[in-house]
Design a protein around this nucleic acid. Structure first.
Length: 120
RNA sequence: GGAGUCGGCCAGACGGUCGCUCGCGGUUUGCCCGCGAGAGGAAAGUCCGGGCUCCGCAGGGCAGGGUGCCAGGUAACACCUGGGGGGCGCGAGCCUACGGAAAGUGCAGCAGAAAGGAAACCGCCCGCAUCUCUCUUGUAGAGGGCGGGUAAGGGUGAAAAGGUGCGGUAAGAGCGCACCGCGCGGCUGGUAACAGGCGUGGCGAUGGUAAACCCCACCCGGAGCAAGACCAAAUAGAAAUCCGGUGCUGUGGCCCACAGUGGAUUCGGGUAGGUCGCUAGAGGCAAGUGGUGACACUUGCCGCAGAUGAAUGAUCGUCCAAGACAGAACCCGGCUUAUCGGCCGACUCCCUUU
């Protein structure tokens, strides 16, 4: 059994990190309820950033839940090359999904994103 | 047993596996290992009140805002407790913006004759003229005209200027009387709000509305942890000291001279970023004492989230009554709103039974 961690090296920490991704998007995957942006980071791990706007998801409970599910998804993915800085943006309606459905969609979108970035 | 009132409590449980944040310890210094702790009754809305921080401030007034029966509690409050008045309920109980309308200004649709120092539409009564009709021919009755009296009755309205009864009267009327209500003045009880009772005024006097302006009493400086403090790359600085035996540019025919242009260190400044503020506090639990109670005091025990792209989760299994509303962001005290279910205590009403 492989041991997965989720420390600070797996997260986008500063506003600068976010700007770098927005400045040069290498791969992009869209879904009705969310949007993933990615950029090759030339590191040994993926890094995750989350933007869940209050405008799109009103309740703090749901915002926290979406972030936790997304982190869990990154944590459980093996580090496939190339490693990416990914920003997950929530869109309206995401809070109406239950945890199982949400993580399924995230996994599926992640797969699509890695496929696209491998093609680069 | 049913219906209901009030107060308090819980907020799926247990066990694997994989994580996150903080604290302590170990350490081969690897963000590695071990141990411990880790969202709420509303963490929410941001509607009040405080602490804390910075700014402002002699004192007083105005403006503006708030509060509004009385007493107490509290750091403070718009909160809480106890009491009083009023309203609702058979009751346990619940609700209550509950100061002033004899300082002034304003407002009141429709209906109604009249709505604020009011008013006679119908009605009732009296008087004067004398017209018409009726027959029981009279000091009769009915209708019409004019002048008065009358707020009992009808009708309108949320409201018609005390209410009910008796007397009184041409009919009526606080015109008189009794009771109730209201005003005024003592008295008694109560800290007080207020209650009780006595006397007195006949009550054309003081209608309603102050979450209308207003008046009265009391209270209130402003901004907020992105407060504020510290460290500090970058980048401004005509800030200081030192260095070149005087480089370069300009004025000039040339020298001298003058002006501009360097380097280093320090200072200053504070952006990105970081550290502190940051959790031991009007703290919790228990017992005792005082108090009707809110609460206060004393003693003992406990150590109880602190993140910062932002931790408290994911997954599997078992069980059940099948898990609602919902996530800390400086911290407390309230209020309000959301909420699946369930438990406990006190009490009320109805029915039944021995």
């Amino acid at each position: 059994m492989k041991v997965f961690k989720f420390g600070k090296e797996l997260r986008l920490l500063t506003a600068e990190d976010y700007q770098d991704v927005f400045g040069q998007v290498d791969a992009k995957v869209q879904h009705r309820n969310l949007l993933l942006l990615a950029r090759c980071n030339h590191r040994k791990t993926h890094r995750l950033g989350l933007i869940v706007a209050k405008k799109h998801v009103r309740r703090a409970v749901h915002r926290n839940r979406i972030k936790r599910i997304a982190r869990e998804m990154i944590r459980s993915r093996p580090t496939s090359q190339p490693c990416l800085d990914v920003i997950v943006l929530a869109r309206p309606g995401l809070d109406r999904m239950d945890n199982r459905r949400l993580s399924a969609i995230l996994r599926q979108q992640w797969q699509a994103l890695t496929n696209k970035s491998c093609a680069l």
